[in-house]
Amino acid sequence: MTAFERLSFARVMQGDREWFRLTVDAHDMHYEGYVLIESVVDQLRAGASFRHSVSEAVFALKDLVASRRRLTEEKELGLIGELLVLRHIIEVAGETTAIGSWLGPLAEEHDFALAAFDAEVKTTKSESRTHLIGSDTQLEPSPGRPLHLVSIQVTRAGNAEQGFTLPALISEVRSSLDQTLRTFDAALEGLGWHPEDADLYKIAYTLRSTPRAYFVDDEFPAITSARLDKVVPKRPHVSSVTYRVNVTDLDHSPIGFPLADFCEASV
């Protein structure tokens, strides 16, 4: 990622005249983009060369060309879901247990490794509980370890009081930490979160429904490495697997401490 990734230049010929085209990617920075272009135009009108005008404007607006990038919506929602679970575990089991069990930032197979089970947290803003599974190991239980998929549904909150943004949720979790604060901050940085970019995350969310847990057993519709080995010829040549699973109509299951009160009780 270069310092000028938000800017692109082109030389255009129209008849015998040569023109320069400046394109500005001002996504989530509309005001700064307008100011940059206005500065270039003002200097051109004053007689400065195109190169000098752009150079001066860029120097004056370093923040615009600093290539600030927010997380994709998918990663933002995924982080929100993990933080909701983390916040709950902190409340009922303490920060040491919570941060120690959070494996999501370490790119492990499952998001949480708790005392009695593993949990893979999936968050969606769709009306159905349809979740993207990013590999053939994400829903494959570790030997001797029960695995639950924790399904979280969120929706845009608008101006609702109970709404929360990603920065607000991070701030709330941070305020509850003491001994593990540095570990938490390092984990967020590894996931691509930068505090100086908090203003890029303006959408507030709220829970659409109570989270549910689904026990990943032999009857669960998961595509796993073990299952693929049995049916796919020359299995080693399949390098990656991504799929979606809809658990809306599946029976949700009970889940143990510390997530029993976080998830909806099974019928």
Results as ranks from 00 to 15, higher is better:
T2W: 03
F4L: 15
R6I: 06
A10L: 07
R11W: 06
F20V: 12
V24M: 05
H27G: 07
H30S: 12
Y31G: 14
G33R: 00
V40R: 00
R45M: 14
A46H: 08
A48Q: 12
A48E: 14
V54C: 07
D63C: 08
L64C: 03
A66Q: 05
S67E: 12
R69C: 06
E76T: 15
L79A: 07
I80E: 00
V85R: 00
L86K: 03
H88Q: 07
G94E: 06
T97I: 12
G100R: 00
E108K: 08
E109I: 10
H110G: 04
F112I: 12
F112E: 01
A116S: 13
A116F: 11
T124G: 04
K125V: 08
K125S: 15
S126N: 05
H131C: 10
R145G: 09
L147G: 02
L149F: 07
V154P: 00
R156W: 01
G158E: 06
N159C: 04
F164G: 00
I170T: 06
V173T: 09
S176M: 15
L177R: 02
Q179Y: 09
F184H: 02
D185L: 05
A186R: 03
L188N: 04
W193A: 04
H194M: 11
A198L: 05
Y201V: 11
R212N: 02
Y214V: 10
F215K: 01
F215S: 09
D229T: 11
K230M: 14
V232E: 03
P233C: 06
P236L: 10
V238T: 15
S239F: 13
D251Y: 03
D251R: 06
I255E: 02
P258L: 13
A260Q: 08
S266Y: 05
